[in-house]
Structure formats: structure tokens, C-alpha cells
Design a binder for these strands. Sequence first.
DNA 1: GTTAGCATGTAAGGAGTTACATGATTTT
DNA 2: AAAATCATGTAACTCCTTACATGCTAAC
Lengths: 205, 205
Amino acid sequence: MARRSGVLEMAVLGLLNEAPMHGYEIRKRLNALFGWSRALSYGSLYPCLKAMLQKGWISEDTTAAGSRRRAKIVYRLTPEGEARFAEHLAEGGPSAWDDDRFGVHFAFFARTDAAVRLRILEGRLRRLEERLERVRAQLERTQERRDAYALELQRYGMESVEREMSWLSRLIASERHRSSSSTSNTTSTQRRGPGTPTHDNGVAT
Amino acid sequence: MARRSGVLEMAVLGLLNEAPMHGYEIRKRLNALFGWSRALSYGSLYPCLKAMLQKGWISEDTTAAGSRRRAKIVYRLTPEGEARFAEHLAEGGPSAWDDDRFGVHFAFFARTDAAVRLRILEGRLRRLEERLERVRAQLERTQERRDAYALELQRYGMESVEREMSWLSRLIASERHRSSSSTSNTTSTQRRGPGTPTHDNGVAT
DNA sequence: GTTAGCATGTAAGGAGTTACATGATTTT
DNA sequence: AAAATCATGTAACTCCTTACATGCTAAC
């Protein structure tokens, strides 16, 4: 009863919601967008697309050019796929600020309701605050037992969390600023991405 | 024929090389040391310990206190386990600067030869340089097609890579400084962790 | 006396990787 | 004509997670 992830499926839904594409291009775009340390493999992508076809979220459009040519398949969203993606965009609960899923929500924020956006950013920030607190307490208790390198590894880990937190704080501030300056914005899912998320005013931790 | 990872096994070897421990404590220490976003589960740890037992790397020492009590198992390294860990410490090739494995090498740098340490840090830095270059090129080509949030996600990803690079640069500088100031150091696997890796002189990118 | 933390495990399954296998098209 | 890049897929496998199951021990 896991109901884990489906991150890849949501990412694909998000890309195809912009434009129909074939597998090869989906992979390139996904790698560029998320910058994973290891590029997504075809061994993950194609089985995923197959599963999505079976669920009826996407349809394939085979370019049977001559007749003997190798298939070139363009995938596009079905109405069910669009509905599933809309559901994803509306999800502003704890699962959205999970480590695994936060990225796939953020990536499509331009098509996300402003209120949901803010909820997710704040939730993510709270999650990291909790983590930092736990790690900091732990570190203080066991500090003298660890060698310099182990300590440095833990320190860098903490610093990374702190940096993500200050990044989120900046984003939250600019979200708040924007929503207060423009009279009502809440329901406009279609408003195009705002003029750069003004990361000039640094809310350094 | 994958020969992937075994990160967890190496981490366990590293901990048990310091002192015998039981599973529950291994888990706590590992979580503290690596600060994974999700804590390591028992469902990973115990089967891993079982496999290591079968390979003969560790032995179990059941504290059969009274006779009816639940087993409390203390694991310790066998000579074969020690040999396997020594092999891990000596590994200074590309696999050591891999995303998956770098951490488990760094964590035990205090017991690693200084020359290997430097090789790994430099290899890791080169790896990240390549990645950054690829991402930066990609970003420039496709920038105008992406919305502000997608762009921000990519920017933050790049910045994170740059930060790890400058961290590595600082560590490399302090390694070099140390090895030049102390007359010969190369073979001393036993020299205890140096007095903090002096991260004051910031070689900011 | 009950909650929190210590302690050990198994079964089922998810999500992805590597390695293999094939072929078309574009660039050099 | 060779090399790079575009393009699609499968089989076997690895690593890890979730959910379940059990019981002890210290503190409040």
C-alpha cells in the first residue's frame, strides 16, 4: 500500500502538458530541468511511458512515415492525463514538500495556483527547519567522538540544509510581495510565470 | 553484472572498524553521519548485515544473558572484513568520486592515506566541473523556452554544484598545505585526523 | 502502568539502473 | 565512410522502502 512517488510520471505529465513530444526528447528535457546526477535511463523512461499508456493518461501517435521505417512515436496527453496533472498541481499537502516530490511540484509552479505555491514553499521550509533542529541537537551531543572529516561532512550537510532554507525564504518573500502588489491573483492558474522570482532581496538566514 | 554500490556495506564496515556495535546503534550512527533525508530503515540494515555475515566480513556475538532473553547481537569485523575495508580505503579511482560513493569515502578520510584523499578530492572536483560545464551550456541554449520557476530550479541546481566545488577547493587547499608543512605524510594511515580541516581561507569560486 | 526508546527481524514490492539489442539520420 | 546523435526498446537485477510483527527496558 506504499503509494510512493510516481515522480517520473508527474514530470512526464508536466512536460506533455506543454507540448506533445517523443520519448527521446522527454528524457533530454527532464535531465535538463532536474539536473539529476545520473541522467535518466531509457530503461526507466520507456517502461514508465508504457504504464502511462495503459492507465490511459497518454496516447501515442506513431509517425508511420513510409511503411518500412522504424516507428517514431509522439506522445500526447489524453483528457484523463490532463485531469491527473491538474490534480497534481492542486496537491498542496505534506506529500508536496517531501524530499522526493518537492522538485516535481516546484518545476511546474508557473502553472500552479499562487496559494498552493506558497503553501508548498512554507511546508518545505518547515520540514527543513525540523530536520536542521534534529541534526544540530544530535551533532552537539556526539561531537567529541567524531574525527575532523566526519565532523566536516556533517557540517557541510547542515550548511546545505541551511542554504536551501534561505533559498526558500527568499522565494516565499518574493511570492508574498507579488501577491500583495497585484490585486487578487489566487485563482489564476493560467497567469504566465511572473517576471523572474526577484531573488535580489536576500533574506539570508 | 552491475557491481553497483555496496555503499551501505562499506559504511557498516567503517563503523565496525572503529568498534563492535549492534544493529540499532549502527543505524543511529549512520543516520547521524550521513544525514540522509530519510533515515535508513531496518528493512535495509538487517538484510545487509545478514549478507555481510554470509560473506564472512562480520561475526555476531549474541549476548545470551539469562537464557530466555531476546537476543542482543553485537557485530564485529572479521579479518576478512578488515581486509575488505582496507581495500575500500585504498580505492582512489573514478568510482570513489562517483555521486553515490564519494560520501562513504569522505566519511572515513581520517583512516585514509593522504595521497588517496587528495586524489579523490581532485577527482570529485573534476567530475563536478564537467557536470557544471554541460549544464551551463545546456542552460544557455534553452533559456528562453523555460518559465521563471523552471529557470530558478536549474539556477539553484547549478549554484549547488558550484558550492560543492568551492567546498572541495578549500579542502584540497588545506590538504596540500598540511602535506607540505609536515615532512612526509604519505604512508601514515594511522595518523589521527588533523586539527580541523582549516576552512577559514575561503577559495570562493 | 503506560509511553518512549531500545532492539530485531520478514515479506512484498517500488523505482530505478545496467547491459543488451536494434536501427535511422545528421554531421564531419 | 565514419562518428555522433537521434530513436526505441527489453531482461535481469539491485537497493531500498513500507508495512508488518515481536518483545524488552527505562523513565515519568
